[in-house]
Design a binder for these strands. Structure first.
Lengths: 188, 188
DNA sequence: TTTTATGGTGAATAAATATTCACTTATATT
DNA sequence: AATATAAGTGAATATTTATTCACCATAAAA
């Protein structure tokens, strides 16, 4: 019986290695060593390197969406609800920077198959629904939802990178300021 | 005498290959074949694969800044000046998507040395100066310039990706809408 | 023209790396 | 306990890939 904990250990090893050496430089040998198992064992759990990476990509994407909406209650007013989701995402990406980098690396990578990409796209559905609600309540601009999401997610991702690489701490204050920039962009 | 046209052909080949196969999957053999030269010739022009990639990275970054400020005249009012720069960048990244992808790939890659990264950072100077001007004229928010640039560049990069991968055309109208989102974010 | 230097070549070499497999160990089933 | 089934191993293999090098082509210098 395959061990869930072993899947987790393999995944953790990959995340660590990708952050350090990039998808490119990470060998199966590296992974097994980092995970503390034999190279052959990787092939018990996954068909090959591609399959391993696709599986991790799917898991990360799914996890990412779950985390975003944690604690979100559709009955509360729109803006504080949106704010809490925004903060959730930002905090999670900063605290799990390796996961964030891995997803970014995968984005253009030939490792990721068309099927995996398609599944990832479907996961974005809740964000479209959120934009629809804001528009229905006339709180945010009535423009294509794609453009709104693009501005929100794009600026957040860049913020995460900037924070991480500059080494400066992201204070509550700076988070709040950046949220306000973002809100001003989309507010009606 | 080494041939400038050959440098250009090698660079063009790399950009094409990275867009297709990622930094990971691109071999020196692929590059020479795509450029129509012998593998050994690559080593006449560059010490090794790392050096090749670093050289191209530096060239792309420099080019990117040059293009951004093309046609910018500091004597015209701030907002139209800023708008023309914003449009310059967006248009260039869409038209040279391969270059954009290459730079993104390099961002976290171990191929890129610390020295190359440092040089790239210095190139961002004109953007800080631009923010300073906008703040001095009290047209844009008086918050950390880093945060402003992050929102501007981050949302634009995401837009470029979204446009490219969704296959939808970016009409003048959609460009204008997105610029307005961006402007609302930063305006005082 | 001869000499020298440099660009160009691609098969050969040396590493690096994914994958396999014969075998061991653990766990479930009878 | 005996047997069957599946997980785990890591050295050996097959493949891929960066890099070299002995040689050819070209063009400038003598």
């Amino acid at each position: 019986m395959k061990d869930d904990k072993k899947y987790a250990r393999i995944f953790r090893a990959v995340l660590k290695l990708v952050a350090k050496k990039g998808l490119a430089g990470m060998t199966m040998g590296d992974i097994s060593k980092e995970a503390g198992i034999a190279t052959g064992t990787l092939y018990v759990y996954f068909d090959n390197k591609d399959a391993l990476i696709n599986a991790l990509f799917a898991a990360c994407r799914e996890n990412s969406v779950t985390v975003s909406f944690r604690g979100y209650d559709a009955r509360q007013p729109f803006k504080p609800g949106f704010r809490s989701i925004w903060m959730n995402i930002l905090r999670y990406r900063l605290q799990h920077f390796e996961e964030f980098i891995f997803l970014e690396q995968c984005y253009h990578s030939p490792y990721i198959t068309a099927a995996t990409r398609e599944k990832a796209r479907e996961l974005a559905e809740p964000f479209y629904a959120l934009m629809a609600r804001g528009q229905a309540e006339q709180l945010i601009k009535n423009v294509e939802k794609d453009l709104l999401i693009t501005v929100i997610i794009g600026s957040m991702n860049e913020l995460v990178k900037q924070i991480h690489y500059s080494g400066t701490a992201l204070t509550k204050n700076r988070m709040s300021i950046t949220f306000d920039l973002c809100w001003d962009a989309i507010k009606a």
